[in-house]
Design a protein around this nucleic acid. Structure first.
Lengths: 243, 243
DNA sequence: ACTTGACACGAACACTGTTCGTTAGTAGAA
DNA sequence: TTCTACTAACGAACAGTGTTCGTGTCAAGT
């Protein structure tokens, strides 16, 4: 009787069911990490659910068991990039510098994954790292700078917006640079050169200051411009402080 | 012989060619105006090339004879919304207020079509209105406030970024409000209420200032917050001015 | 009348985020 | 051990996006 099941060819009318691939286990951390990897390598435009899923050797639908939607995923990634930011104990003698240091660190972390800034614009950042950093910044401004809590919290809100906006703008340039196939330096030189030429070509009777200040207007690295805006904001805060 | 062509029924095997619809004529102005109409009525998310084309009773491909791509279209729309902004002659006694007035006007114009702020983030605004306004703001800062052209131009760059970012953030909230089907007031109250409850629920030992300042942190309208940031920036500028 | 160039148009491409229904796997209970 | 219930993984499909390509139309010029 055992011979009945031995080595009988499968009839050609049988649809052989494809071998079921083993299911992989995913968790949120893996998904966030894969997203960050794609983001850093290819930019925010490349971060589609399909692309992230491909990185995990699965399909996009699998991600939805762990994140509600793409926006939530980007939010999680955003908080992840802030994990290494440290906030010092407030020192009334140096509160302004301390504050700027934290702002710079946040900006650098965001800019290093600079496309992710879009997530900070889209949602109030309330991940664990965002909250930790905000509390630390509040302490610097309130305990170090003697600012009122309302002033301090509004200032942090505004400055967080400024960081995100600057990093986001930078990310859009980065996307253009990538698409151009040029190096960052080449892209920047070309972009700034074109802008300079354009400004210089404007009619001087209507745009005397623009035309006359082309050099200054187009000078400065993105770091320098970020610092300039931060200086203005913090000088404005200093006028309200009482350490 | 003339009778041969009279009133002979079309044989049923003929595919009668559908009547050719008359071609409409488009120009860039129409396209920009239609885009603005969709933007104002339905928000930036609704501004697809198809939606704009539908507004003009044509197909999306027709738009590409007049605009290079969607990004350029949004850029044109952005410049359009600034058409009514007026910039006063500089007055050294009031340069700071003059400057703030212009910033507010730009912010209001952008926020009134607030989704369009995304375009200002994506490109250096070099449309005719943007250039006109920038020149006028330069005049206020340089001639009115005695600032160096480098200071003035960088400040305008930073503040333009601030305006765009704030308006853009506002637009994201507006999109959520629309999607919620609630009124602006309902949406805002609910959003702020949830944020307040969330902050209040945080562990007080780790977030003493956050929990202790929930009221202040969540107070203030978007106008008030915008003004606060603008005040900080302009106070920072005032520290560098020499009218 | 013919030619040329620009524009309008429709079809199609490649891609997006997400949902829905099905299947697989696991833990807990009987 | 078996059964049940739940959750996660998966594939197919949906509805939508920006854009390109090829074709046809129209207007101006020769």
């Amino acid at each position: 009787m055992g011979r009945d099941t031995e080595a009988v060819p499968t009839p050609p009318w049988h649809k052989t069911k494809p071998a079921t691939r083993p299911r992989r286990h995913l968790d949120q951390d893996q998904i966030v990490a894969a997203t960050l990897k794609v983001l850093d390598a290819e930019g925010l435009d490349a971060v589609s659910m399909r692309r992230v899923a491909a990185e995990l050797d699965t399909g996009p639908a699998s991600l939805y068991a762990h994140v509600a939607n793409k926006n939530e995923l980007l939010d999680l990634v955003y908080d992840r990039v802030l994990v290494d930011i440290e906030v010092p104990e407030p020192d009334p003698a140096r509160w302004a510098d301390q504050f700027k240091d934290v702002v710079r660190a946040c900006w650098r972390a965001t800019a290093a994954h600079n496309d992710i800034a879009a997530a900070a614009l889209a949602n109030i950042p309330v991940g664990p790292n965002s909250l930790r950093i905000a509390e630390g910044m509040l302490a610097i401004l309130v305990r170090g700078g003697g600012l009122a809590p309302r002033d301090a919290s509004w200032a942090i809100d505004r400055i967080a917006l400024y960081i995100a906006a600057d990093a986001y703008e930078g990310s859009l340039h980065l996307a253009k640079q990538r698409a151009s196939g040029k190096s960052v330096q080449e892209y920047t030189d070309e972009f700034v050169g074109q802008l300079r030429d354009y400004y210089a070509s404007l009619p001087e009777d209507r745009f005397p200051l623009t035309v006359g200040s082309v050099g200054q207007m187009t000078a400065g690295s993105s770091d320098e411009r970020f610092e300039y805006g931060l200086d203005l904001l913090v000088d404005g805060l200093a006028a309200r402080s009482d350490p």
